[in-house]
Amino acid sequence: MRLSDIQIRDPFLLTVPEDGGYVLFGSTDNDIWRPPATGFDCYRSTDLEGWEGPIPAFRPPAGFWSDRNFWAPEVHRHAGRFFMLATFKADGVRRGTQVLVADRPVGPYVPWSDGPVTPRDWECLDGTLHVDGAGEPWMVFCHEWEQVHDGEVCAVRLSQDLRQAVGEPVLLFRASEAPWAVRLRHRRVPEDVAAYVTDGPFLHRLASGGLVMLWSSLGSRGYAMGVARSVTGTVRGPWVQEETPLWADDGGHGMIARTLDGRLLLTLHQPNDTPHERTVLRELVETAQTVRLRG
């Protein structure tokens, strides 16, 4: 298979040096917007060109609380295991990010946290893991526009075993702070309400020690992805938004992977239109302050 053969949203590329290859995760249901949800599949490759799959990475166990909106699985190594952070929802239950775990990169993943670790009375999605310089794990996530209108990116500290949140979430920034983000026009948004989307945060530590965050919203040419920079180099920020998006043309929800030979790859989906979404890989270069597309 080629990437052009694989329908996927919110792609996340895990590099597995001990296996000499890569595992691609993402929102893989044919229609992620409607129940019932199936789970998450993944795909393996040794060269980023040919892919093997689909491989079932997660299937909900009997009695699992969610039946819809299985979105944006990310897999991170932590304490010798593989932890998946993924978004789920159910009828009458707010959307949130739960932690799952496996002993192998491809799974099978099983629930680890007791339901979502995002606040139970918030509409949340797209949690990502960040371990700070002191070794403290944080989850950075989005507080959805559907609840707060001006979508927020927030952070909450996690326990060392990643089973639960520790303390209260902190607000990092709002979508409208980005000069490139445009107002959402939606049938569920009154004309007198300014709504802005936040999606898909991902943090990257630069070789210089700086800390940047990719995140997505709507731009002038559709779905887009920008970069925010932490002034202090810590997850608490403050965060400064770059003037123009890193990716402007109907694609987003990106992350940064490192290839087996050490190059940086931007991974995102494009177009933002079901069922046509496909993974896009583009090489990145670092500066002392940020990341840029090569060429």
Rank of each mutant, 00 (worst) to 15 (best):
G251P: 11
H253A: 14
I55Y: 03
G254K: 11
W215K: 06
E146N: 11
G133Y: 00
V193M: 05
D67Y: 02
P179Y: 12
S113K: 13
V291N: 04
F64P: 02
P111M: 09
L281I: 00
R282A: 03
V148Q: 01
R77V: 03
G262V: 00
H204Y: 15
M139A: 13
T267F: 07
W239S: 02
E144V: 02
A181H: 15
R282M: 01
S208A: 06
A134G: 05
V156K: 07
G39M: 04
E283R: 03
A37N: 04
G39E: 05
L293T: 02
T279D: 02
L125Y: 06
D19A: 11
E123A: 12
K89M: 09
G107Q: 04
E242A: 11
G39V: 04
R9P: 05
Y196G: 07
P169C: 06
Q98R: 13
L3T: 04
R263Q: 03
V227M: 04
G226Q: 13
V280K: 12
F83H: 14
P179V: 05
E144R: 13
G252F: 10
V16W: 08
A79I: 07
C42S: 08
A195H: 02
L211C: 08
D47T: 10
A79R: 15
F83T: 13
M1A: 11
H143D: 06
V16P: 06
P245C: 11
Q7H: 15
H130R: 13
H186W: 14
H269K: 11
V285I: 11
A90E: 12
W122K: 03
N30S: 12
A224S: 14
C42G: 02
H78N: 08
L265C: 03
G237I: 05
V110G: 01
F25L: 08
R229L: 09
A134F: 00
V99F: 15
L184E: 14
T287S: 15
T87C: 15
G107C: 06
V231M: 05
H78I: 08
F25M: 09
L218C: 13
A134I: 01
L48E: 00
W51L: 04
A257P: 04
M213R: 12
V140P: 08
P271W: 06
T234D: 03
L246H: 15
P54Q: 04
D192P: 03
W145R: 15
D10Y: 10
E286V: 00
